[in-house]
Every structure is written in C-alpha cells, then in structure tokens.
Amino acid sequence: MASDKVKHISDADFAAVISSAQPCLVDFWAPWCGPCKALGPVIDEVADHFAGKAVIAKMNVDDNPVTPGKFGIRAIPTMILFKNGQLINQITGATAKAQIIDLVNKAL
C-alpha cells in the first residue's frame, strides 16, 4: 500500500515545501525508471518511519522539468535532503531503507 504520508510535490510548490524547518527529503523519480518505481515502497516505509518528524516528498521529473534542471539531476532515483531551504545531502541510485533513514536522522 502506498503511504499517504508521502507528499507529491511539483515545481510550483517545491520552494515552499523545502523551506520547512523539519528535514525534507525529495525523491526525484519518473514512471519509466524501474529502480525508481521499485524504490516506491521503500520511500513509503521511510515516510511512515518519520511521520510528523520529517517531510518525505516525491517529485516526478517528467511533469516537473524546472527543479531537476536547477539541481543538475542527470540520474534517478536521486534523493536530496533539505532543511530550511538548504541542500544538506544527496544520494543517487536505489538505496537501502536503513541508509535513507540514516541520512534523514542526521538532519533531525
């Protein structure tokens, strides 16, 4: 089951979402990317884990070309962690749940 705790964001609300004082992880993905789709359930579990403590968001790079362009994203899945609008860290490639949780934990 897809988690309702994952926030689906777009170019339009990106800036507002990442300006949050809570850490915000954005998973950049696309429907044609197998590893991105397979990472979906992992992101869902991460979102459940951080419910209320961090924002876990997803952005479809096909529908939202501006933000990925701004961050020079040439590979997906890429996850970027923000806090107060600042880029804190970035991981590229399908990643284990524990590693993603670790990354967000460090920014709490």
Partner: peptide, 17 residues
C-alpha cells in the same frame, strides 16, 4: 560526476541524454 553524467543504469538515466 556520479549523477551528473556518470551512470550505471540506462533505463533510469538514458532519457536525460
């Protein structure tokens, strides 16, 4: 350049090129 041009996955990253 990982994620900035270097890739190990065609199906993930081909469309960026």
């Amino acid at each position: 350049f990982l994620g900035k041009g270097v890739s190990y996955c065609g199906t993930c990253d081909g469309p960026f090129f």
